[in-house]
Design a protein around this nucleic acid. Structure first.
Length: 214
DNA sequence: CTCCCGATAT
DNA sequence: ATATCAGGAG
């Protein structure tokens, strides 16, 4: 049974990473929203080098709207795609001010309608800021779900629905954070550390790469 | 499907 | 030196 195996994997990872939360630095939903927009195609670690200083200077959506693009571009430069992200953040803040009373909407649908916010970002914010059940599928979740053999797909939405069908919704937010953490520490994209992996026995992948590199 | 882009591992 | 990492919009 697939669900049984999924639950088993969840338990093992939960034991391994008891305090699995988003690795992003944030103090409130708005900060998490901005941090997550910045985390597109960028490691959380890199985002965290930029956000503490950024949030000290700019607290509210209106603060971000009040500054020239060039200032914001310079602040977030190292996260890559900085021109796009500056536009996304500004447009997003504009919508927050104009349509949401300067606050972050508390539903997945409203979140994903914000500029610069797709399913992954909406899920991260919904789940980690508001405790709304959601599966955030980033590159780690996608990769590991494939490696574990639960699915064969590059479509994040398919991965998302797969986990939603595999686990009860009180575990959705946690499984994302667990897989992301595991993906960064052990099941690393460039070179998975299968020897140190707690899922070794439950994963079809290690056996297929026995004598690779040693 | 293409564009957006810096940081880091190899 | 260069491949790879890491999401959203048009």
């Amino acid at each position: 049974m697939e669900k049984k195996r999924a639950l088993r994997i969840f338990s093992i990872l939960e034991k391994e990473y008891p305090a699995a939360t988003s690795a992003l630095y944030f103090n409130n939903p708005f900060e998490l929203l901005i941090a997550t927009i910045l985390s597109a195609q960028c490691t959380d670690e890199r985002v965290n080098k930029v956000t503490p200083g950024l949030f000290r200077k700019f607290k509210l959506p209106a603060d971000f709207l009040s500054i020239p693009d060039e200032i914001l571009e310079k602040e977030i430069f190292s996260t890559g795609f900085y021109k796009q992200k500056t536009k996304s953040i500004k447009n997003c803040c504009r919508v927050l001010v104009e349509k949401h009373d300067s606050r972050v909407p508390e539903s997945f649908d409203e979140l994903s309608r914000l500029p610069g916010v797709g399913r992954k970002t909406a899920s991260v914010v919904a789940g980690n800021a508001f405790g709304i059940p959601a599966v955030a599928v980033d590159t780690h979740v996608l990769r590991i779900t494939n490696l574990l053999g639960f699915i064969e797909s590059r479509d994040p939405e398919k991965i998302e629905f797969k986990w939603k069908e595999l686990l009860p919704e009180d575990k959705w937010v946690k499984i994302s954070n667990l897989l992301i953490l595991h993906g960064r520490k052990i099941c690393i994209a460039r070179r998975p550390q299968c020897a140190d992996c707690v899922l070794n026995k439950l994963c079809p992948y290690p056996s297929s790469t026995k004598e690779e590199k040693m």
